[in-house]
Simulated scan of single mutants.
Amino acid sequence: MTLTSARPDKAFWLSAIQREAAALRAVTAVDDALASPVPSCPGWTVADLFRHTGAGLRWVAAHVVRGETGSPGDPSTDGAPTGADLLPWWDAALAAAVAALGGTAPDLPAWNWAPQDKVARFWYRRFAHELAVHRWDGQVAVGLPEPIETALAVDGVDEVLDTWLPADGGLAKTGDGVVQLIADDSEDSWIVRVRGGAISLLDTATLLPEERPLQTQVSGSASDVELALYGRVPFDILTVTGDETLLDCLRVG
Rank of each mutant, 00 (worst) to 15 (best):
D31I: 00
D31T: 00
D31P: 04
L34I: 00
L34V: 00
A35D: 07
A35T: 09
A35F: 00
P37M: 03
P37W: 07
V38E: 06
V38T: 03
P39D: 09
P42S: 01
P42M: 01
P42G: 01
G43C: 10
T45Y: 12
T45M: 10
T45Q: 14
V46H: 10
V46D: 12
V46Y: 07
A47V: 00
A47R: 12
A47Q: 10
A47P: 07
A47D: 07
D48G: 06
D48L: 05
L49C: 07
L49R: 04
F50R: 05
R51I: 05
H52R: 09
T53C: 13
T53K: 15
G54N: 08
G54P: 07
L57N: 14
L57M: 13
R58E: 14
R58A: 11
W59Y: 13
W59N: 09
V60M: 03
A61P: 07
A61H: 05
A61T: 01
A61L: 06
A62H: 10
H63I: 15
V65Q: 02
G67K: 09
G67E: 11
G67S: 13
G67L: 13
G67D: 10
T69W: 10
S71Q: 11
S71T: 05
S71L: 06
P72E: 10
P75H: 03
P75K: 02
S76R: 05
T77I: 12
D78M: 06
D78G: 09
G79W: 06
G79C: 02
P81D: 03
T82K: 00
T82G: 00
A84V: 00
D85Y: 04
L86S: 02
L86V: 03
L87Y: 05
L87K: 04
L87H: 04
W90Q: 10
W90K: 12
W90H: 15
W90Y: 15
D91F: 07
A92G: 10
A92W: 08
A92M: 08
A93M: 10
A93Q: 10
A95I: 00
A95M: 08
A97T: 14
V98M: 00
V98K: 00
A99W: 02
A99H: 05
A100C: 07
A100K: 10
A100N: 08
L101R: 03
G102T: 06
G103C: 02
G103A: 04
A105I: 08
P106H: 06
P106L: 11
P106Q: 09
D107V: 01
P109N: 15
A110M: 15
A110N: 14
W111D: 13
N112I: 15
N112W: 04
N112C: 08
N112A: 07
W113A: 15
A114C: 11
A114W: 13
P115E: 03
P115L: 05
Q116E: 11
Q116A: 10
D117P: 09
D117R: 12
K118W: 06
K118E: 14
V119A: 12
